[in-house]
Simulated assay, not measured.
Amino acid sequence: MKKFFVIFVLFALPLGAYLFFASGVNNFARLPVLTQEIYQLESFRSLEDEEEEVSFDGKITILGFPGGEPLEYSNNAYHLAEKIYDRYAEFKDFQFVSVIPSGSEAEVEKLQDKISKVIDLKKWKFVTGTSEEINALFDSLNTDLELTGDLSTPNVFIIDKEGKLRGRDKDDDGNELYGYDTGSIFVLNNKMNDDVKVILAEYRLALKKYNRENTEK
Score class of each variant (00 low, 15 high):
residue 54 V to Y: 00
residue 4 F to E: 15
residue 80 L to I: 08
residue 26 N to P: 04
residue 39 Y to Q: 14
residue 99 V to F: 04
residue 123 K to C: 10
residue 123 K to P: 06
residue 159 I to C: 02
residue 102 S to M: 10
residue 77 A to I: 07
residue 149 G to I: 05
residue 55 S to C: 01
residue 146 E to N: 08
residue 202 E to T: 09
residue 186 F to M: 09
residue 100 I to G: 05
residue 210 Y to K: 06
residue 208 K to Y: 15
residue 15 L to A: 15
residue 195 D to K: 04
residue 186 F to C: 07
residue 189 N to E: 14
residue 107 E to I: 06
residue 44 F to S: 02
residue 101 P to W: 01
residue 39 Y to K: 11
residue 137 L to E: 00
residue 189 N to A: 12
residue 177 L to P: 04
residue 97 V to R: 02
residue 149 G to L: 11
residue 191 K to T: 15
residue 53 E to D: 05
residue 170 K to E: 13
residue 25 V to I: 15
residue 28 F to G: 07
residue 208 K to S: 06
residue 35 T to A: 02
residue 178 Y to R: 04
residue 195 D to E: 11
residue 74 S to G: 01
residue 55 S to H: 06
residue 137 L to T: 01
residue 98 S to E: 04
residue 213 E to G: 07
residue 23 S to P: 13
residue 120 D to P: 11
residue 18 Y to H: 13
residue 191 K to S: 08
residue 104 S to K: 02
residue 44 F to C: 06
residue 198 V to A: 07
residue 41 L to P: 01
residue 70 P to A: 00
residue 130 T to Q: 11
residue 57 D to K: 09
residue 202 E to L: 10
residue 65 F to Q: 01
residue 81 A to P: 01
residue 42 E to I: 02
residue 49 D to Q: 06
residue 188 L to D: 03
residue 67 G to Q: 00
residue 84 I to R: 04
residue 43 S to E: 14
residue 93 D to S: 10
residue 86 D to L: 14
residue 120 D to Y: 15
residue 216 E to R: 12
residue 88 Y to R: 05
residue 145 L to N: 03
residue 198 V to H: 08
residue 81 A to T: 03
residue 33 V to M: 10
residue 188 L to T: 03
residue 214 N to G: 00
residue 107 E to W: 03
residue 27 N to I: 11
residue 148 T to G: 07
residue 66 P to G: 03
residue 10 L to M: 15
residue 96 F to D: 00
residue 167 G to E: 01
residue 134 I to P: 01
residue 14 P to L: 13
residue 28 F to D: 12
residue 101 P to A: 12
residue 93 D to T: 05
residue 68 G to I: 02
residue 167 G to F: 08
residue 46 S to G: 11
residue 135 N to A: 06
residue 180 Y to S: 03
residue 139 D to F: 09
residue 196 V to Y: 01
residue 124 W to N: 04
residue 183 G to A: 12
residue 62 I to A: 01
residue 175 N to K: 14
residue 144 D to T: 12
residue 183 G to H: 02
residue 147 L to S: 12
residue 15 L to E: 11
residue 23 S to D: 15
residue 80 L to F: 02
residue 127 V to G: 04
residue 36 Q to Y: 10
residue 179 G to V: 10
residue 202 E to Q: 13
residue 54 V to L: 02
residue 119 I to P: 08
residue 2 K to F: 15
residue 137 L to G: 02
residue 58 G to W: 04
residue 151 L to R: 03
residue 137 L to R: 01
residue 123 K to N: 14
residue 149 G to Q: 11
residue 34 L to R: 00
residue 106 A to W: 12
residue 1 M to L: 14
residue 23 S to F: 14
residue 140 S to N: 09
residue 96 F to E: 02
residue 9 V to Q: 14
residue 101 P to S: 07
residue 196 V to M: 08
residue 122 K to P: 05
residue 16 G to D: 13
residue 217 K to L: 11
